[in-house]
Design a protein around this nucleic acid. Structure first.
Lengths: 155, 155
DNA sequence: GATCTAGATGAAACCGGCTTGCAATTGCGA
DNA sequence: TCGCAATTGCAAGCCGGTTTCATCTAGATC
């Protein structure tokens, strides 16, 4: 599920900055959009559209699910938000952060491991020399076997 | 969507070999399973469960969709089949082949590029040294920008 | 401040991919 | 050949996500 349109990342750190981005594109700053952005800023990690629409479980103000999807897609197009797919559940959305990172998931035990920007760059450089692709690994996790499971025979 | 259970690859090249694998596990060789395996052998590349259930569009005998999914999942557990997710559509299933490979998809123009086993091994070795993971890239494609799109400014 | 209008919202229905429940069927060992 | 558990097909259901459309509202214009 590659995003329909890829856009340059745009790091926003506060609600006013985010709303300025909207206005600079001639888009409206509605109560719903403000709520969604505030929820994203308040969230501690990537959250599902449903959780966001519920106002992080009631902690902040929410909106209906289709609107959440519409706005998340918009924010993503503007480069303020990215979404990841980890596991079988829904996609998880988060504001674009300064430090890029990615996840690796063990297919056998489910262990989740985070790769730093430096580690990613080494891998990316290997892909670049293989086929010229400028890869990022932020949308899908890297799948495989963690060190512990790789040592054991296949179940 | 990592597979629920990872299993060692088991390359089968013919229908008899595949049925022997089933029998060796105490599983039944039903007409439906034989049909599914013959369709997979006849398919020219990864196919969706729906296309498989239709008997590759009527060319061979098919079965109902839930049975197709059940059997594909079984074959995957036995290591004979793997499935990939490329683009937004359904997962695509194929018999495990001798030559491992993976895909890279450009997020902007959609270009699909195949990575050889040797190229993959170089990338995998980089991941291994980063976090000890034994990565494979056969379930999700590697996403990024192809050489051509990476050169142009973000749209 | 009142008016106007395109852009945004919410409610409901819809969609595709996949799974589950269950009665009917069938492979295959005895 | 018989018996029964594994397997099947059908129908319904589930879940993540999208579309439709009438209503509402941000914000430009007067």
């Amino acid at each position: 599920m590659p995003s329909a349109s890829y856009s340059a990342p745009r790091v926003v750190t506060g609600i006013d900055e985010a709303m300025a981005v909207l206005r600079s594109q001639g888009l409206r700053v509605s109560a719903t959009r403000r709520a969604a952005l505030e929820a994203l800023l308040a969230a501690e990690g990537p959250v599902s559209a449903e959780y966001l629409a519920s106002g992080l479980g009631g902690r902040v103000s929410g909106c209906d699910l289709p609107s959440a999807y519409r706005n998340l897609e918009l924010f993503e197009r503007l480069g303020m938000v990215r979404h990841v797919h980890i596991g079988h559940g829904p996609g998880l959305y988060a504001l674009v952060a300064g430090d890029e990172h990615a996840y690796a998931v063990c297919e056998r035990c489910g262990e989740l491991s985070r790769l730093s920007a430096a580690q990613l760059e080494a891998i990316r450089s290997e892909v670049r020399s293989a086929n010229g692709f400028e890869a990022h690994f932020s949308h899908f996790p890297i799948l495989g076997l963690c060190a512990a499971c790789a040592g054991k025979p296949a179940g």
